[in-house]
Design a protein around this nucleic acid. Structure first.
Lengths: 197, 197
DNA sequence: CACATAAACGGAGGCGCCTCCGTTTAAATT
DNA sequence: AATTTAAACGGAGGCGCCTCCGTTTATGTG
C-alpha cells in the first residue's frame, strides 16, 4: 500500500480558492435565512446583496435556483439528523425522542412550499420514508432503539410506522394553531409509546 | 317548464364585448402557432405583439401563462377528437383509424415539453387513458367500433389496450427519424389489427 | 343620433432573471 | 519579494414578467 500519485491528490477534485469557499458558505447561510423567512421565491439578487457578493458570484456557485435550494435543504436535513445524537446526550431517551420528533415535524412542515415548487421532497421523500436508508430515518431509528432498549418505550414499534405517523402529522393543513396542534399530537404519540410503570 | 328569467339569460354568464372576443381568439391563434414553433417558453410579450394587442390585454384574458397554455392545449385536443369523425367520412374505416392514430401520436409527442413544464398532461393523461371518459378516448373508441363492426379489424381489442399501445409509441425518445419510426410502429399495429381475408 | 358608462385596451414602469466579460486577487512559481 | 496566471469576482445590460391606471371604445338607452 504505497506509492500513489507523486504529490497532489489527497483532497480529491475541486479545491476552492479561499475567497470562493467563503462566499459560497456565506451565500448558503443567507439563503437559508431568506428561504425560511420569505419562502423559496425570494429574489436571488437580494440574497446576493445580503451576502455581500455580486449576482454573478451567486450564479457561478449555483447555476440555477434549484441548485441553491437543494444545497440549503440538504444542509438543514443533515443538521436535523445530527441533532438526534446531540439530544440523546442531553435528555432522557424518551424526551430526546419527543423533542426530536417535534423538530422534525416542524422542519418538514416549513418546507412544504419548497417541496411543492421544486419537487425535491417528492424525490427525497421516498429516500426519507419508505426506503431503507436516509439520514433522517437513521436518526429516528437510533433514538427509537435506545429508548426501547433502556425500557422507556415499547419495543414493538417499527421505525417505518413511526415515520408514517409523523408524516400524517406534518401534513395537516397550515393554521395559526398548527404548532400547538402538532405538539399535542406528538404528545399523544409519546403516551402511546411510553411503557407504563 | 317555463317562466325562467325575465329576459337576459340564454348565453349564460360572461358575454364578451366584440373587440374582446376578437382579441382573445387572435391571441389563442397566435399562441398556438408560437408554442408549436418555439415551445411553451416563448415570450408572452412576443405573442401579444404578434397578435397586435398590448401585453396588458393578454394578461387580462389569461392571468397566467398556464391559463393560456391550457386553453391552447384543450382547443387542439378538441380538434383532434373532431378529426375522427371527419376522417371516418373520407376513408375506409381501417385507413381512418390508422391516419387518426398517426395524428394522435404526432400531436401528443409534440406536447411533451408542454406537459413537462406544466404537468397538464399529468392531469389530463389520466383523463385521457385509464379513465373512462375523455374526448380522445371517445374518438378512438368510435373509430375502433366502426372498423370492427364493418369487419375491417378484429373485434376483440379494447380501446384501453390500444391507448396503451399508442402511449408507448409516442413516448419513445425524440430523434430525427422519430416520425418514420412511429409510422412504422403504427403500421405494425394495424397489421395486427386487420382481419385476414 | 347623442350620450353615458362599463368594458376593454395598452404600454410604461418596476422588478427579477441570467449572461457576459473586463477587472481583481489568491496562490503557485521563481 | 516579485512575477505570473488561472480562478473568482461583480455588476451592467438585455430581456421577460406582470401590474397599474389613464385612455379608448362598444353598446345600451333616451
Amino acid at each position: 500500500m504505497a506509492s500513489a500519485e507523486p504529490k497532489t491528490a489527497p483532497p480529491a477534485q475541486t479545491r476552492l480558492r479561499a475567497d470562493a469557499r467563503r462566499n459560497r458558505d456565506r451565500l448558503i447561510e443567507v439563503a437559508a435565512a431568506a428561504f425560511a423567512e420569505k419562502g423559496v421565491e425570494t429574489s436571488l439578487e437580494d440574497i446576493a446583496r445580503q451576502a455581500g457578493v455580486g449576482i454573478g458570484t451567486l450564479y457561478r456557485h449555483f447555476p440555477t435556483r434549484e441548485h441553491l435550494v437543494e444545497v440549503v435543504y440538504r444542509r438543514e436535513l443533515e443538521s436535523l439528523a445530527a441533532a438526534a445524537t446531540e439530544l440523546a446526550g442531553k435528555h432522557s431517551p424518551d424526551m430526546a425522542l419527543e423533542e426530536w420528533m417535534r423538530r422534525f415535524v416542524g422542519y418538514i412542515a416549513t418546507k412544504r412550499g419548497m417541496a411543492n415548487s421544486l419537487r425535491i421532497l417528492m424525490t427525497s421523500n421516498s429516500a426519507l420514508f419508505s426506503e431503507g436508508s436516509g439520514l433522517i430515518r437513521g436518526a429516528l431509528e437510533s433514538l427509537l432503539k435506545t429508548a426501547g432498549e433502556q425500557g422507556y418505550i415499547r419495543r414493538d414499534i417499527e421505525t417505518t410506522d413511526l415515520m408514517h405517523a409523523l408524516s400524517s402529522i406534518y401534513s395537516i393543513p397550515e393554521s395559526p394553531e398548527w404548532r400547538e396542534r402538532s405538539h399535542r399530537l406528538i404528545g399523544l404519540l409519546m403516551d402511546g409509546l411510553r411503557t407504563r410503570r
